[in-house]
Every structure is written in structure tokens, then in C-alpha cells.
Design a protein around this nucleic acid. Sequence first.
DNA 1: AAATATACATAAGTTTTTTATGTATTGGTG
DNA 2: CACCAATACATAAAAAACTTATGTATATTT
Lengths: 118, 118
Amino acid sequence: MYSKELLKGTLRTVVMELLARNEKMYGYEITQKVKELTNGKIVITEGALYPLLHKLEADGLVSIEKVAIGKRIRKYYSLTDNGSSTAQQLVEEFADFVATMKLIIDPPAQPGYGTAIV
Amino acid sequence: MYSKELLKGTLRTVVMELLARNEKMYGYEITQKVKELTNGKIVITEGALYPLLHKLEADGLVSIEKVAIGKRIRKYYSLTDNGSSTAQQLVEEFADFVATMKLIIDPPAQPGYGTAIV
DNA sequence: AAATATACATAAGTTTTTTATGTATTGGTG
DNA sequence: CACCAATACATAAAAAACTTATGTATATTT
């Protein structure tokens, strides 16, 4: 579990992508799924997740369905239409960002004096 | 210039990687180089850069050389030995993080009933 | 019976970055 | 040559995004 600094800007992307792939999920399920998929490398804390889910709801990107499990209430979240397109955008932006970072970390070779482009 | 959310955890990585590739650079030069390399997609603001450079220095990851350019003083930063290994670590961590993110965005196919692994 | 896992939630504090300002020199252009 | 844009540094207030800590309660496993 060491991808902390980096995770900062990507929590929203991670959560929405999971919802895009799974129709409906509840908070705790999301934390477990992320742990499972990443072999424990990415761990979402509850203090970060729940406020985010509430914000996504306030922004109309997810809808809620409450389901009683025994005496407990579980809140299932699913993407709205708006949420679906946002999720797609976020994933695209992430891919683009990674490609952009690669330009810095692994810059294309400059054409020098000996390498005429014909 | 749209990679803002994502840039959050990567500023340190970007700056140190540039210093790793260039021996010595000054602040303004870093902002311009990043713009150039990324075709304007990543823009480092001065309000973020200068405090970071000062922190890197305080942490002993970079050393400073002041050079007078006319009446102006330019501050060249170079990585210390410690800084070099940190830079390398950061880049590795970023690569690892991207690989981990891929597990979520582009998860490996689950082996199902019809796909016995022999 | 006790410990662990499930399941939600919020609040205080930290870190990181944006936005806004400030100062000053240098180079180019009408 | 006056003015604007670019060069070059810097800091401070505010916002944003998380972490850490804490709280509550039910369900399951040992």
C-alpha cells in the first residue's frame, strides 16, 4: 500500500470507473474491490470515500438505492447518464495524462545534426 | 493545459526528473521546459514551483548555485546524490502506480468456467 | 464471549496546489 | 524611446483533497 501521493488526483477516476464496470456498488464494496484488484497497493480510506460519494450524488453523477440487509442499511450507488459520460472522460483524461507524463520521463529523441529528416 | 487534477501528486516527480536529465536548471527554465515538452498540456505555476524548490533544498535533495545575469540573480538547482536516488524512486513509483491503475481501468480477464488453465 | 469484519458517517488537521500579488530587470517593437 | 511582453524571483491567503481519528451499530467467526 504505497501509492499514496499519486492517488491524490485519481480517487474520483478510480471510483467512477468501478461504478462504470459494475452497475451498482456500495461503499464498503468499493474499498474491498480496489484492494482486491490492486493486490493491496491502492487502499481507499473511508474518510476519503464517503465524502466523495456524497459529492458525486450532490453533483448528479450517481444515484442511490438503499437496501436493508438485516437491520443494516446498505447504500448502493450507480452512475447516472451524466455520470457515465463523466467516468469515460476521466479515464480518457488519465490516459492522456500518462502519455503526457511520458513526454517528460521518456522524452522523444531530438533530431540532431547527424540525423537529417528526409 | 488541462491536466490539473491529475498533476497534483506528480509535481515533485516532474521537477526532479527534469533535474535528473539536465544537470542544472533554474526555476523559470523548468516551467518553460515542461510547457515545451508537453506541448502546453502541463503548466507549472510559480506559486507551486518555488515553494517546492525551497523545500527540496531544505530536504537536501537539491543544491543551489547563484549566478548573476546582468543585474538579475538566477538560481540554478542541481540534484544532490540523495536527490538523484529520490528522483529515480519517484519515477519508478509513478510507473508502478500507472501499472496499478491499469489493473482497475483495464482489469485482466477473470478465468471463467470455460477457460481452464492447464 | 470476544474479536474481527461489515457498513455507514463526520470532523479536525495536514499537505498540496491555485490564485493573487509583489518586485525588478531585460528585450523587442511601433 | 516609451511601452509591453518576457524573464526571474518570491510569498501569502484561500481552496481542494486527503489522512487520521473517532463514533456508532450490526453481523460473523473463533
